[in-house]
Design a protein around this nucleic acid. Sequence first.
DNA 1: ATATTTGCAAAGAGTTTGCATCATA
DNA 2: TATGATGCAAACTCTTTGCAAATAT
Lengths: 156, 156
Amino acid sequence: MSSSKNILELFDKASKILEDYIILKKLRRTPERNYLLKLIYQRNDHFGADDLFLTVDKERFNISKATVYNSLELFLECGIITKHYLNNNTSIYEKAYGFKQHDHFICQECKKIIEFCDPRLYQIKKSLEEVLKVEINSHQLYLYGYCKDKKCKGKL
Amino acid sequence: MSSSKNILELFDKASKILEDYIILKKLRRTPERNYLLKLIYQRNDHFGADDLFLTVDKERFNISKATVYNSLELFLECGIITKHYLNNNTSIYEKAYGFKQHDHFICQECKKIIEFCDPRLYQIKKSLEEVLKVEINSHQLYLYGYCKDKKCKGKL
DNA sequence: ATATTTGCAAAGAGTTTGCATCATA
DNA sequence: TATGATGCAAACTCTTTGCAAATAT
């Protein structure tokens, strides 16, 4: 979700969260992970593991797919990125720290993703916790349909 | 979502929908598809393509995975089943005709799925259509958290 | 007769794993 | 120096595709 906050500042805070997590779990700092996190916070889209892999500057870093997947997993664990499972059995990711939890509308024709945030969802979640007798700590809502872009034909 | 209606009756109506669709699209009736649809309406869970494949009575039918996938695709097209993309990049399906559109809570510990239905979601969808200037024709809402089953340890 | 649907096997895409090497604490 | 992390390649899983044979209309 777009934000007026400085990207660098958010990257900085995400880095600190990662740092803390690394200390907590007695892991190790690596240049690969730092670089990947920076790449992620530089982009403003939903990207796949392979998209990220392809944007690695091959002159400066020799980063393998395994490392990309390992790093994404770690970033997920400490909550600085989120992961979505869209309609083709592949995962897409987006930076999460400093960005409001939000949901997605996906155009079935042109695949455009529109993000939105509706506070009423939180009321629904709260009341469902009681009704279902569960503890809810996250959600993903996907709306599917057709956008009305000139460029998009929409439903025929 | 559990329903008090007769399973056979629902299967019957789903079959008719399929029948109409087959005529409309000038496709052909096949015993494989009929059998698979019956298998689907006999079960009450969320199943993968392979789960369905494995329940085929090998004595009576020699059904390939390709046919399973083809059939599921067709059933989806005419709306008698629904498809979900859960957290491991595989698809699960469930019968849809005669069952209320509903959403899912997934326990992160024991993977149990609890279904629910909240009418407030429809209000949200309606108003988002105006705000986002889109046409919404379906949605999927997944809530994640911990259930409070005795059998489930929940969050540690 | 015609063209859809099938089974089979192979290909494909995305992700995970095994292992030797590297490098951080 | 002990162990976590890496790169590489192979393995794996789920899904799709190509093709010849079967079958519904």
